[in-house]
């Protein structure tokens, strides 16, 4: 018997294959993404909420109806990810951005492809790059990422 046993390690994967029901509002939003559109809801006083909610997060009132926004928008704030982790949406360095779509009054979290942090700024104009129609399933990743509007990153 070994006096000092080697310390063993092993990979251990824990996985839950959840399928969740999304409800009428998020369902409409995801249906929109699948069809290549970005939809918001109308909250209190006509405020447009994207991503949409069933209730206005400020007043608690029920939202009323879907409205198409974008597709372009403005970066309100961002952070640069210099060393992406394995589960990040892009393998190369990228920016997390909050995007206020044209016509929206709230911001939407997504990913911006850019050459570097110097190419990203609050106030910059961006547009979503949708996956191809055949690839879209009704998920926030139906938008692959954002790019600077009017030009390649």
């Amino acid at each position: 018997m070994a006096d000092q046993a080697e310390i063993y390690t092993a990979d251990h994967v824990l996985e839950y294959p959840y399928l969740r029901s999304v409800g009428p509002v998020v369902g409409a939003f995801l249906t929109g993404l699948r069809d290549g559109k970005v939809l918001g809801t109308k909250g209190t006083g006509g405020r447009v909420i994207v991503p949409p909610t069933e209730y206005d997060p400020e007043t608690g009132e029920e939202t009323a109806g879907m409205v198409e926004v974008g597709p372009e928008g403005t970066v309100t704030t961002w952070t640069w990810v210099a060393r992406p982790r394995p589960k990040h949406p892009l393998p190369e360095p990228f920016a997390w951005v909050l995007v206020r779509f044209d016509g929206a009054d709230t911001s939407f979290l997504h990913v911006l492809k850019a050459s570097g942090p110097e190419a990203v700024a609050s106030g910059m104009r961006v547009r979503p790059e949708f996956r191809t129609e055949g690839e879209r399933v009704g998920h926030v990743k139906d938008i692959s990422h954002f790019v600077a509007a009017g030009g390649a990153p």
Binding site: R34, G138, H139
Partner: peptide, 9 residues
């Protein structure tokens, strides 16, 4: 319309 979303952990 989309009613379900895969959300694996």
């Amino acid at each position: 319309p989309v009613t379900m979303m895969a959300a694996p952990i």
